[in-house]
Design a protein around this nucleic acid. Sequence first.
DNA 1: TTGGTCAACTGGTATATACCAGATTGTGTA
DNA 2: TACACAATCTGGTATATACCAGTTGACCAA
Lengths: 235, 235
Amino acid sequence: MSTPHYHHLQQYFSDLIASQQLVPGSKLPSERKIGEQFKLTRVTIRQALKNLEAEGLIYRQNRRGWFVSPAAVIYHPASHLSFNLYVTEQGFSPSTEKLAQQIEPANERIAQLMNIPVGNPVLYLHRRRYIDQRPVLIEKMYINQNLLPGIEEEDLTESLSQILKRKYQQEYRDMDLSFKSTSLPAHAANDLGIAAGQPGLQIERINYTSHKQVLEVDYEFWRHDAVTINIAIRD
Amino acid sequence: MSTPHYHHLQQYFSDLIASQQLVPGSKLPSERKIGEQFKLTRVTIRQALKNLEAEGLIYRQNRRGWFVSPAAVIYHPASHLSFNLYVTEQGFSPSTEKLAQQIEPANERIAQLMNIPVGNPVLYLHRRRYIDQRPVLIEKMYINQNLLPGIEEEDLTESLSQILKRKYQQEYRDMDLSFKSTSLPAHAANDLGIAAGQPGLQIERINYTSHKQVLEVDYEFWRHDAVTINIAIRD
DNA sequence: TTGGTCAACTGGTATATACCAGATTGTGTA
DNA sequence: TACACAATCTGGTATATACCAGTTGACCAA
């Protein structure tokens, strides 16, 4: 067994995608069909498909099939551009869905960051964001409502940075970012409609006002194949 | 089948690790042993182990076994600290191995970035870096030797930033960073001694001199469980 | 003590098979 | 035409089994 069978399969689909005989969004044949064609069992085929998934070339929808991944969007956090803006600029179609919005008592971490007592109310916002109808990102944010009175009355499917600018004459400035490549936790995988344990990218983002106060703490859970992060460091 | 069997197994090992009954570096029982204990087949066990691997809790060494992952090191690219420094500061023991060093003709991308003709010589450096004896990172760098005459005579297992400072009175300043969570390409997986297709983090880094010239282009391939990236954006 | 050989052990790859649960599709009825 | 329902298709989970290819450790010979 010089090179394993699944490797040939990987190469086969990889080539089809590279040569655009399979275009983003199109459906692969079912695992059983591929099995007939290549005389391989589903175990072997799934190994190949999972590897392609890890490469970011394909993705699956539960019990619907495997699909070719669209190109990843480039996320440039330092630019302070909103999701809607940078996704649109790159030729994709963004949308946002609010899954939950409520006033919550601050947990320890949030309280410490926002310099408020533990248990004080913060605005919790839970959103799902799409690129071309594909759910790619779950956001869970904690907003310092002391700094943004009345924020909970806004349409929070809108871009937050827009609301900040329009209503509060504030802009995002300093931020702390933390990235970790790891599988998606069950809650995020569920929200994205994918099996738990699939690879993902987790981001923690802390946004500050121009007066060094914590405006918002943001946890993002991305499909790993949906995004590339670019940052320019300028001293 | 309310919750799948592999999920119980995952929880079991996850708990053992969280409660430190299994400490970083220690070996899990073999897949067959686990199978006997839990009356499950290897297929099911491997599903659980692969999920734990994706979470970053365990990793494998080819035909040696599964091991508990050490804590991830925090990489703070904007700090300009060398690998040796930040790894040491976090209580780990770094080491570096030079895999290749040669003068190479610049490819299109490198040439364009460095503003030199395609095919002009650049210094190519290929290193493997370890944390506590575990290979975690493959580096492939292209160095603008026009800006650093004689660089090829230095000990290039050393920190490059040290050499820059000592020999050339230069320091890292501006840089462009690009992150992508994807599986490791075959060459990097090989160099890390792991099976191709395992999850990883790819970084492209372009380092500039204080005069906006490209000093070095760096491709990094990290084990995904070995690193968390932190960046502070300050306008 | 050193070096080599070999058996046992490990994960890696693969076949064949089965049943489950959600998604889709087609059909027949109201 | 609109709806309900059943058949079918899809990936998800799992068993049982087999052989391959590096790794390790024990043992023996030089």
